[in-house]
Write a protein that binds this DNA or RNA. Sequence first.
DNA 1: CAACAAACTCAAAGCTATTCTCAATAATAA
DNA 2: TTATTATTGAGAATAGCTTTGAGTTTGTTG
Lengths: 158, 158
Amino acid sequence: MRIALSLLLSFSSQYNVLTSPLVEDLHKDGKRLTPQRLKVLNLFENIGSGNHLSAEEVHEKLVKSSSKVSLATIYRTLRLLVKIGLLHELELSEGGHRYELLSNETPDHHHLICIRCGRTEEFESDEVLRAGKIAAKINGFKLIESSLNVRAICPKCI
Amino acid sequence: MRIALSLLLSFSSQYNVLTSPLVEDLHKDGKRLTPQRLKVLNLFENIGSGNHLSAEEVHEKLVKSSSKVSLATIYRTLRLLVKIGLLHELELSEGGHRYELLSNETPDHHHLICIRCGRTEEFESDEVLRAGKIAAKINGFKLIESSLNVRAICPKCI
DNA sequence: CAACAAACTCAAAGCTATTCTCAATAATAA
DNA sequence: TTATTATTGAGAATAGCTTTGAGTTTGTTG
Ligand SMILES: [Mn+2]
Ligand SMILES: [Mn+2]
Ligand SMILES: [Zn+2]
Ligand SMILES: [Zn+2]
């Protein structure tokens, strides 16, 4: 395990994963840092923000990189990473959830989705956020999240 | 059939359904005006805009008003009415599609949804529409529809 | 009104994202 | 190192929405 871990770590980021906030979050809940969890998280970190993967896609990508993790575990891990706050769960279209890395560099943003090929572009808009806030306030709702999905057709698909 | 039709018509609107655009649309496609189709459409007209029904809910409501239409027919009819342009298909949350009457009085609008009880409020926002347009333009996409879904918790559910 | 395709009903089947089961494994604390 | 117990893998099972099929009914046209 020591060896496997350091291989995984090599892809990963700034600090030593073993003492990272991630591990602390996990341990204080009686949860464990497993190679599978690291693989999923590393995939999102390496692929970069702007990607919105389904559980199935995460699975495929890990298989291709000969880092197979079972689909059941991927579902379990995605749920966990969302709860911890490292991933964000999206409903960009039909056919299940998609996940993206939640980072400081990519704050609240919205999505422009090609309904033909699925290509997805991100954009930010304070106006949209404000509109959501106002609507919630007017109706006495406690806002959780507002997301604008723009369905469109990309240049290649026109 | 003549009698059944006029009963249904009594709920309905301005002009004679038999010569309405609806019927023309149907007939020019070899499609037929059936009591079932009228019942579904009338339900949406009577219930008023601002309602967002699932197929199952349409079914329930028709059963309660002793106007039973089979669920299979409801699914086929909803699809038809969307294609004709009388209904709008929404994905407000998980768990299947919802439908709302598409009318001139309720133009493009957005939804504030209570994640606990499902209560849904509508609101309009030019800023949101503009943001969607701009995002599409910048990326060279042809815009189809932009919808802002605000997930929140309503006063009763807090 | 008769002819005929469209549409209806009821029931069964399909779909597919997600969860469950449980024996085997392995991360952690002591 | 050992004991404890969280986690995994593989696939079967689930769940919910939606579609399809067979046989019957009915709207529409001439
Ligand atoms: Mn994104
Ligand atoms: Mn609406
Ligand atoms: Zn495209
Ligand atoms: Zn509520």
